[in-house]
Amino acid sequence: MTRTLKCHVGIGAAVEGEALVANDNFSARYDLDRLKGVFSRPQHALCGQSYVDKILVLNTAKGGVATAWMLHEMKSRDMAPLAILFNRTNTILAQGAALASITMCDRFDDGDVTTLIKSGDRLRVDPIAGLVDIL
């Protein structure tokens, strides 16, 4: 049965894909091997896992400004996540998502999105409506 989560209006186009979830934070510079398409920071909860074409579900954005360019560069090589859902985003991830045309939403009405969604769940994200369906 489909469950629908309400969130703030986001960025990008509606997409459908598989969730990769962790109660951890995100920075493209700090956490990723962008050439291999995997999380590479040893302390990250998703270390070793591929993020390519996944809908990342994470707590918040952290660290520096580089991610604003890096999402665009990753997308140009087809090595980007399909979408990113946060409990709360920061400005850099929003700016990066806008430049790269990567779907991004945050601020979910029902609480902690990293517990509402599980890795492997099939999701449909509609950022214009501010809705995420768990299919």
Partner: peptide, 15 residues
């Protein structure tokens, strides 16, 4: 503006 070539990549420079 932060814009180092590692972050920009070829597509960023092209912009």
């Amino acid at each position: 503006m932060m814009a180092d070539p590692e972050s920009l990549g070829e597509c960023g420079v092209a912009l």
